[in-house]
Every structure is written in structure tokens, then in C-alpha cells.
């Protein structure tokens, strides 16, 4: 933790005496002013290139839109929403998304933390190891999936290896049983590098004295981890978990790669997710109104989950 209490005492005394009059300096020292100035670049870009287009999509979700003329949408009320909520494929997609998130997020969070701790040790070649663990995150996911597809075919050594765990010797991504697991594993594989480097930078912020002090108090390795590392990493863990959830819902490239030459979510919808559902209807089938309604529903679902996570994990505020 950053420490500067040497100044803290002086600070309290001086605060009383320097009540500034209005000046540029006092502006630059005001929370209201600086808060807004610092937020403004983000807010402008956001309003322009996010909020405005998003509102256009929102309005469209109540319309039947002919893409030939986007301005001529026909208002049809909640019909798009009703249709989606009555579509069994939507629930299949939602169920698949939830499965991906429920498996991937805990695994990648724990694994990412373990790997961050490993590469934060004083060991030889840690720069190299960090780089290797980060490779899947920075490789094109389509390429990575293509390679994984070469490895998870029937009769390859990888597939045979997994038969030891009771899996069948079949092409994983062609099996309606295993395809979703295949996609989930690939997602974890990619995302764990991200989790690792976020934790790695958080570990740099934990003061060494805390550990040193705990050693004097007789703490063992596990106690240090449990009572110093884990609590200190709590805000970052909230970040990692909520981002993992969000990205888990957005997983697309891996599914697109295994569905090439066929319908998205192949085989037979086993890997369809809310995002592929949106993509098929909103973009492929050019049903912009319907697709936009799917976005709005999607948005409320993740919103709900994030609020829950915030309640559970982030007690800082």
C-alpha cells in the first residue's frame, strides 16, 4: 500500500489556513470541477459514440425495421420482445451462456490468481513464463480455435487422453454433448492470461512490509495468503469476476470458428449463446428490430448479474 503518513500530520494543520478565494488554482483544487473535467472526455465520447447509437437501437427494438430504409421503422410495441420470450431457441441460448459463465468464471479466477502468484516469485525466466501464459489471450481466437480443433478430433492423443476421465473418443466440437465444454475450455484458456496479468499488477501494490510484519507475527504461507493477499485483492477480484462474467456472455469468435460452413452455434445449437442469437437474428437475418430487442433483454440480464456480484463482492463503497 502507498504510504505517506509522514505528511499526514502537517496536512491537518495547514488545511485550516489555506481557504482559497476564487482562482484557477482553487478550481483545479475543487472536487466538483476536477471531477467533471476528468470525466468529460469520457462522457463526450461515450454520449457521441455509445449512448446515441444505443438509443437508436433501443428505439428500434419497438419497431419492425426494413433495413432498406432505417428511418421508416413501423412501431409495433412490445411484439419483438414477446416473440423472443416465446422462442425456445432463446432459452437454449440463455442456458448455454449461463453454463459457460458458471464454469469459466470461477475456474479462470482461481487459476489466474495461482498463475499470477507463481510468476510473481523469484524464479528464473519469469518474464518468459509470463509471456507464455499470456500468449492465448493475445492470439487471434479464431486461429487458436482452429488449432484446438485439430487437437480435439477423434483419435488424436488429446482426445484419447481425456478418455481416461470418462470422455468418449469423438470429435468434441461435432458432439452435441461436448461442444459447449470445448468452447468453455477455450474461453478459460484465453481469459486466464488476462486474469493473471490483472492480478499480477495488483500483487505489485501489496506492501512488502505487510508480509514482513506477518512473518514476525509467526504467520505461515497459507495464513499470509488467506489473511493478506486475498483481502487486499478484493477490489480486483470484483473486477476480474464481473469482467469475466461480461466477457463470458460475449464469447463469439470461438463459436464462429467451430460453426464455420454451418449455422452459428453448431452443432445443432449446442453452442448457441445470447450473443450468437442476437447476431443471427439482428445481423444475419437482417431483422434489426428483433435483434435490438434481444440486445435490450441481454443487457438487463447482465445488469442483474452484475448488481448481484457487486452486492456479494464489493463492500468497499
Amino acid at each position: 500500500m502507498l504510504k505517506a503518513d509522514t505528511y499526514a500530520g502537517r496536512n491537518k494543520i495547514k488545511k485550516q489556513t489555506t481557504r482559497p478565494r476564487f482562482s484557477l488554482r482553487s478550481l483545479a483544487d475543487s472536487d466538483q470541477f476536477v471531477g467533471w473535467v476528468f470525466s468529460l472526455p469520457f462522457l463526450i465520447l461515450w454520449g457521441w459514440w455509445f449512448f446515441y447509437p444505443f438509443m437508436e437501437s433501443f428505439v428500434r427494438s419497438f419497431q419492425e425495421v426494413n433495413f432498406m430504409d432505417l428511418s421508416q421503422g413501423k412501431f409495433i410495441g412490445l411484439q419483438n420482445y414477446v416473440l423472443i420470450l416465446h422462442d425456445p431457441q432463446f432459452y437454449q441460448a440463455l442456458g448455454n451462456s449461463l453454463k459457460i459463465v458458471l464454469i469459466a468464471v470461477p475456474v479462470q479466477t482461481v487459476l489466474g490468481l495461482v498463475m499470477a502468484i507463481l510468476v510473481n516469485q523469484k524464479i528464473k525466466g519469469k518474464g518468459l513464463f509470463r509471456t507464455i501464459f499470456f500468449i492465448p489471450y493475445i492470439t487471434s481466437q479464431i486461429a487458436l480455435t482452429t488449432v484446438a480443433m485439430m487437437l480435439f478430433k477423434e483419435n488424436t492423443f488429446v482426445t484419447k487422453f481425456f478418455t481416461a476421465f470418462g470422455m468418449e473418443n469423438v470429435t468434441w466440437f461435432a458432439s452435441t454433448k461436448y461442444a459447449l465444454l470445448f468452447v468453455t475450455l477455450l474461453f478459460i484458456f484465453q481469459q486466464v492470461g488476462f486474469t493473471m496479468i490483472v492480478y499480477l499488477s495488483a500483487l505489485q501494490e501489496i506492501s512488502k512490509e505487510l508480509y514482513e510484519a506477518s512473518v514476525i507475527d509467526g504467520a505461515n504461507a497459507w495464513q499470509k495468503f488467506r489473511f493478506i493477499t486475498v483481502p487486499m485483492l478484493k477490489p480486483v477480484t470484483f473486477f476480474v469476476v464481473s469482467v469475466g462474467t461480461i466477457l463470458g456472455f460475449q464469447i463469439f469468435d470461438q463459436i464462429a470458428a467451430i460453426s464455420r460452413y454451418g449455422a452459428l452455434g453448431s452443432p445443432a445449437g449446442a453452442t448457441s449463446t445470447v450473443i450468437t442469437y442476437f447476431y443471427q437474428h439482428g445481423i444475419r437475418y437482417m431483422n434489426l428490430g428483433y435483434g435490438s430487442a434481444a440486445v435490450v433483454i441481454f443487457f438487463f440480464i447482465i445488469m442483474l448479474i452484475t448488481v448481484l456480484q457487486k452486492k456479494l463482492l464489493d463492500d468497499k463503497e
Binding site: F54, S57, I246, F252, F278, G291, F299
Partner: peptide, 13 residues
Amino acid sequence: ITMMIPYHMILIP
């Protein structure tokens, strides 16, 4: 909220 919405959902507008 912004974080939650994948950008390609608003790519057409």
C-alpha cells in the same frame, strides 16, 4: 453498463 454491452451490437448505428 457500457462495459456490459458488446460493441458490435451497436455497430450498425
